[in-house]
Design a protein around this nucleic acid. Structure first.
Length: 491
RNA sequence: CGGGGUAUAGCGCAGCCUGGCUAGCGCACCUGGUUUGGGACCAGGGGGUCGCAGGUUCGAAUCCUGCUACCCCGACCA
């Protein structure tokens, strides 16, 4: 059943409408292409945030905050950067409203025009490097390892809930280094952090690699990415880490004296993941009953649903539940006791399933009599009855098992949807019939990649790291190639 | 910006072609009762300037004109 739903070639926005909005994750806002993230959705985002934040700090980073508004002139400093973002910037031109002289609400006060327009950040490289110029004089000031949690705005022509919203939440790391090698190491280290998070917390297997020049970040010399496969066979870029070379240092004149007393430009990286990760979670694991959350990211890991007819029965059940709550909480498990009297047990079962709670425990009069509880797992929907005394160990074990199972299921799915194409016909046949990742030879030119995209909508998702050398022929042009790259249709 | 579609209760929709009683249905909401181990049932109830403006007509949700908003497909997209 779940398979049917997930494998449909239908648009995922339908899925969002059916699942996500009802699941209290988000809903469309009045503002074009923006999202309201409701409490349940935000709780998931907070879990993502706190986990990543800890990892950033473990790797030596600190948090800071830079302004939302960026003077327009900053964007013209780095040529390829402005070219990449110019078409999707929201611009602030005025700072005051006034009453409409004709009495029709308020109008923009034309006398309050800004001398220089402000761009609402689509990303913060420019304003951050403008600050770094004053912070860096010597190699002793380096490295700077800063992360920022923020919102950004990109006025995309078409938006899609979670995957491409006009405003989204993210973190952006911006680091400055004395050497090229150190900057490249930083970019690849952070890619590793993202890959670890995706696989071990989100339970989503990812491919890691570099982007082709076409798909590279505007202003970067190299873009590293993690790329995941969704249940409908389309790829989703889940995080990127960029080696920016000295481009931004040159654009913002950030120079330092190195150990040899020589003036040099600083080397840079930037890296980020966004609320798009929540789209990935939904599309990778959900089934027909709603969201399926990996235990390590679930705001509520265990829900306890009492079954009762009378207030006395509820009191008896609650008495049994109290020690369970305490013992699970003492093992750092997030538990919720859903003792609402306004909803029936059946209602609660469905609701918590919808929201993706990994484990559900049911206790009712029958259990009180027998000293048992019923335990149900969200990923397989299996239920079993066990002795109350076995519960604690079972829950701990089950949470691990579910985390593991979700990853393995997603990995098996990816493996079953990864193909090798040696000819153009094989390539297009796979794309049209199955989708998924396709390893194929490419002649290494942008023109060829663009042609392939124009004909099939497939793009190069990653050029795998440590790509094995294999002599072959480009699937489109037949020109020689030394290794396969990964193609897919993507979000 | 091009192509297609939609706008009727909080949500989802029917009615429109072929104008006509008080604009209807499901979900949700409220009240009472019975229920409660997989989204309970019965009875009663509240909620609408039918997207906006104009026109045709004795009469417009329905026909005509204009406008606006939103959705889908494309172009676009770290």
């Amino acid at each position: 059943m779940a398979k049917d739903f997930a494998s449909k070639e239908e648009n995922y926005s339908q899925w969002y409408n059916d699942l996500v909005i009802k699941a209290d994750l988000a809903e469309n806002s009045a503002v074009r292409g923006c999202m309201v993230i409701k409490p349940h959705g935000y709780a998931i985002w907070e879990r993502i945030q706190s986990t990543l934040d800890r990892k950033f700090k473990e790797t030596g980073h600190v948090n800071a905050y830079f302004p939302l508004f960026i003077p327009k002139s900053f964007f013209s400093r780095e040529a390829s950067h402005v070219e990449g973002f110019a078409k999707e910037c929201a611009v602030v031109t005025h700072y005051r409203l006034k009453n409409d002289p004709e009495g029709k609400g308020v109008v923009v006060d034309e006398s309050a025009r800004l001398e220089e327009e402000l761009v609402i950040r689509p990303t913060s490289e420019t304003i951050i490097w403008n600050s770094y110029r004053d912070w860096i004089k010597s190699y002793r000031d380096l490295p700077i390892l800063i992360n920022q949690w923020a919102n950004v705005v990109r006025w995309e022509m078409r938006t899609r809930l979670f995957l491409r919203t006009a405003e989204f939440l993210w973190q952006e790391g911006h680091t400055a280094h004395a050497t090229k090698e150190e900057a490249i190491l930083e970019a690849s280290t952070m890619l590793g952090v993202y890959a670890d998070f995706a696989e071990n917390w989100m339970a989503i297997p990812v491919l890691t690699g570099t982007k082709s020049p076409n798909e590279r970040f505007a202003g970067a010399l190299e873009t590293y990415a993690i790329e995941a496969l969704m249940q409908d066979g389309k790829a989703l870029q889940c995080g990127t880490s960029h080696f920016l070379g000295q481009n931004f240092a040159k654009a913002f004149d950030v120079k330092f004296l190195n150990r040899d007393n020589q003036l040099d430009y600083v080397w840079a990286t930037s890296w980020g993941v966004s609320t798009r990760l929540m789209g990935a979670l939904i599309m990778a694991h959900s089934d027909n009953n709603g969201l399926v959350l990996p235990p390590r990211l679930a705001p509520v890991q265990v829900v306890i649903v009492p079954v009762f007819k009378t207030a006395e029965q509820l009191a008896l059940v609650t008495e049994k539940v109290q020690p369970i709550l305490r013992s699970l909480e003492s093992r750092n498990i997030s538990v919720k006791y859903d003792n609402r009297e306004t909803h029936t047990p059946g209602w609660k079962f469905s609701e918590h399933e919808f929201k993706g709670v990994p484990v559900r425990i049911t206790i009712g009069p029958r259990d009180l009599e027998h000293g048992t509880v019923e335990i149900a797992r969200r990923d397989t929907l299996e239920k079993e009855t066990l002795r109350l005394t076995d519960l604690e160990n079972k829950v701990v074990h089950l949470l691990d098992q579910i985390q593991q199972n979700l990853f393995e299921k997603a990995l098996a799915f990816r493996e079953n949807n990864t193909f090798y194409a040696n000819t153009w016909k094989e390539f297009t046949d796979i794309l049209d019939s199955k989708g998924g990742f396709i390893y194929a030879h490419w002649d290494g030119t942008s023109e060829t990649e663009e042609k392939i995209k124009a004909e099939t909508k497939a793009t190069i998702r990653v050029i795998p790291l440590n790509n094995p050398v294999e002599n072959g022929k480009c699937i489109l042009t037949g020109k020689p190639s030394q290794g396969r790259v990964v193609f897919a249709r993507a979000y």
